[in-house]
Design a protein around this nucleic acid. Structure first.
Length: 669
DNA sequence: GGGGATTCCCCGT
DNA sequence: TTCCAACGGGGAATCCCC
């Protein structure tokens, strides 16, 4: 009797550890897959990475179980219905089939490794990979014989192949050779599509027609030409569409080619036994789902199980799977595609040191801003990517009313997103900007963007005074009209703090406001209007008994604050709140903030100032506790657990407790 | 209900 | 000795506002 799957799992636990490393890849025939899998398992077992992989595996299994349960519930009538839907869709897709084009997919062989060998011939014939001990970008064919491959950590690769030479990446070199190959492609198809540095799709239909040559001949010619120009080999696939051409280029790798004739029988025969995993877009997870939930292993089986596919997947996903079953792919010449986003990310040793994390964020913001300005991009959605010490990936995004590209703007908003996650131990931080402006000339679309002082003086009534983020150094007032602004205010969960935020609002123009009497008068009018507006908003929020303690002579308050900040009261003790010991430690409460974290330090100073003003006004010590700097001390409720949006259940009714409001707002940053 | 925003997931090099 | 990347595109689920 055959051993059960569980028995096998117990005896060889590595067999259930699904990595991509044992997937069939060019040059990996004859590799002892079991040995590779065992070593990868042994090297990984017990690590945070491994635990996270197990968690992901469990999620996929759950997803598969759900799908199987849904499939089991389908009645005969349902299946008959979905079969009709599938049949209709299949004939519609079939009607789009175009066998007239001759597409070529060219793929350089172990590109980075080949380039490195070219510049250092002593590497020839030796197992070698490009990358680092953390991660390999590619491996040459000698290394692949040991099971070493791209996307494998170097330290595992070394275990598989102790003599492996690891060469660091050098994109300058790869770009140079990439350019040379592209010059060749250009000659055959001026509109060729570069899929990456080392891959391209060419529509050779016209050139074949003009010269009365076949796809096979043109592929040979192009490969020879690439070799002549670069001394590097490449492989090619020729087929009636790009999807198939890509599959074909992998068949006779390295330094080979495969031609799929432009006729229906050839295509359908080719596709009939093709494993789904060979199709671009079907990766480890989708392969797993198709196999375990639907029993689909080959492309042909997509058509056999078409009714199930239509029953469980969305239209677009079902269309994709059915197209794969028919061997259909794109045959049109792709239009110029504009970049959709720009990002950067860095991995480091896991840490919860907030100073370190903010510094990293600052570096990333600066790099991203530089990259954006090089390309003349401005975007309005900023996404912060985090990877925790346990490899959990989180994305937090904010969409702004204005386009940004400066380091200051990126850092300002990224900091807010990061703050909402603290405390946390991270091993990666990334920033991404998307939703670009359409002109893409570098300048923000809104050229009328006001400085803070202009804004206040002009008395823009739309401004939300609830915003407690006063930042005289940054000339962007965008967050004020953003929900995020009000949410952030509500991250404070007591009324004292709300009062404080109102006081702080009055600090907005401290640094830039002139002493001109007319301006002062105008300013006070605006401030008073804003206070009234805010008072009404806050009253609505907290109830009629709320009375902010900031009424009174705002002009006098402003004057005294300006004096304080300009140093006119330098001799008095009033300057004390603005002293930062060693540029990062507050002398009042001892809180530490990175020196370059200007916004937060300013905000913190403002806090002490507001506290002092309140004390002066009431004549009593309102608070004896230390302030609640948002950077370090966070609402423990808001920062704990998952940040998934929480929908209130009907049971919870329409009345949202005020605490809940504050907590939730912070979470939904 | 439609559409934008947010988050997560999947995939590729 | 070392201990799992850096991007970028796109789909889908969910939530929220209009």
């Amino acid at each position: 009797m055959a051993k059960s799957e569980t028995d096998v799992d117990t005896a060889r636990p590595w067999q259930s550890y699904h990595t991509v490393y044992t997937n069939a890849k060019a040059g990996m025939d004859g590799v002892d897959k079991e040995k590779v899998q065992r070593i990868v398992y042994q090297m990984s077992k017990g690590s945070s990475y491994f635990k996270n992989e197990e968690r992901k595996e469990a999620d996929i299994r759950e997803k598969i179980d759900n799908m199987r349960a849904r499939l089991a519930k389908l009645t005969a009538a349902d299946l008959s219905h979905y079969q009709m839907v599938a049949d209709k869709r299949i004939s519609e897709l079939e009607a789009t089939r175009d066998l007239s084009r001759i597409w070529l997919h060219v793929d350089m062989d172990a590109f980075y490794a080949a380039v490195e060998t070219l510049s250092n011939p002593s590497l020839k014939g030796k197992p070698m990979a490009v990358g680092s001990l953390s991660m390999l970008s590619t491996a040459n064919y000698e290394a692949r014989k040991f099971g070493v491959r791209a996307a494998m950590p170097g330290f595992i690769a070394r275990k598989l192949c102790p003599k492996l030479i690891i060469v660091p990446t050098d994109f300058k070199k790869y770009n140079h050779y990439g350019d040379l190959t592209r010059k060749v492609f250009q000659k055959y198809d001026p509109n060729f599509l570069a899929a990456s540095l080392d891959e391209a799709y060419l529509d050779t239909t016209e050139v074949c027609k003009e010269r009365s040559i076949t796809g096979e001949e043109i592929a040979e010619e192009i490969r020879a030409c690439v070799y002549e120009e670069t001394s590097l080999t490449c492989s090619a696939g020729v087929a009636p569409n790009r999807l198939l051409a890509k599959v074909c280029s992998d068949i006779n790798k390295p330094n080979g080619q495969f031609v799929l004739p432009n006729n229906l029988l050839a295509v359908m025969t080719f596709i009939s036994s093709l494993p789904v995993r060979k199709i671009g877009g079907i990766g480890k997870v989708t392969e797993h789902v198709l196999r375990d939930a639907f029993g689909i292993n080959t492309c042909e089986e997509m058509l056999q199980k078409a009714s199930y596919i239509c029953a469980l997947f969305s239209h677009s996903t079902a269309d994709f799977f059915l197209s794969v079953g028919l061997g259909l792919g794109r045959t049109d010449t792709p239009e110029v595609r504009l970049r959709k986003s720009i990002s950067n990310e860095r991995t480091f040793s896991a840490t919860s040191d907030e100073m370190f994390l903010y510094h990293k964020l600052e570096d990333l913001a600066e790099m991203l801003s530089t990259d954006m300005q090089k390309e003349g991009l401005c975007g309005r959605t900023l996404t912060l990517k985090l990877k925790t010490a346990s490899f959990e990936v989180r994305n937090r995004a904010v969409t702004l009313p204005k386009y940004i590209c400066s380091t200051e703007d990126i850092l300002k908003h990224a900091s807010k997103l990061l703050k909402a996650e603290l405390p946390v131990s991270l091993r990666l931080i990334g920033l991404r900007v998307s939703h670009f402006n359409e002109d893409r000339k570098g300048a923000p679309l809104d050229s009328t963007q006001k400085t803070l002082i202009n804004f206040i003086v002009s008395g823009d009534a739309s401004r939300k005074v609830m915003d407690n983020h006063s930042d005289p150094c940054v000339k962007n007032d965008d967050e004020t009209s953003l929900s995020i602004g009000t949410h952030e205010t509500c991250s404070f969960n007591d009324r004292d703090t709300l009062n404080c935020s109102l006081s702080l609002k009055l600090d907005d123009s401290n640094f830039t406001f002139s002493n001109d009497a007319g301006q002062m008068e105008k300013f006070q009018k605006t401030v008073n209007e804003n206070v009234d507006e805010t008072k009404s908003e806050v009253t609505q929020l907290l109830g009629a008994d709320f009375s902010p303690p900031v009424e009174g002579n705002c002009l006098e308050r402003m004057k005294s604050e300006i004096k304080l900040l300009e140093g006119e009261a330098a001799s008095s003790n009033q300057r004390e709140p603005f002293l930062w010991v060693n540029d990062y430690k507050c002398s009042i409460c001892g809180i530490e903030l990175p020196p370059n974290f200007v916004d937060e330090r300013q905000e913190h100073s403002d806090f002490h100032l507001a506290q002092k003003l309140q004390e002066e006004e009431s004549g009593t010590e309102l608070r004896t506790s230390t302030p609640r700097p948002r950077v370090v001390q966070k609402d423990p409720i808001a920062s704990q657990g998952k940040r998934k949006k929480q929908k209130l259940s009907p049971k919870e009714g329409k009345h949202i407790p005020i605490d809940q409001f504050f907590t939730r707002s912070n979470q939904n940053f």
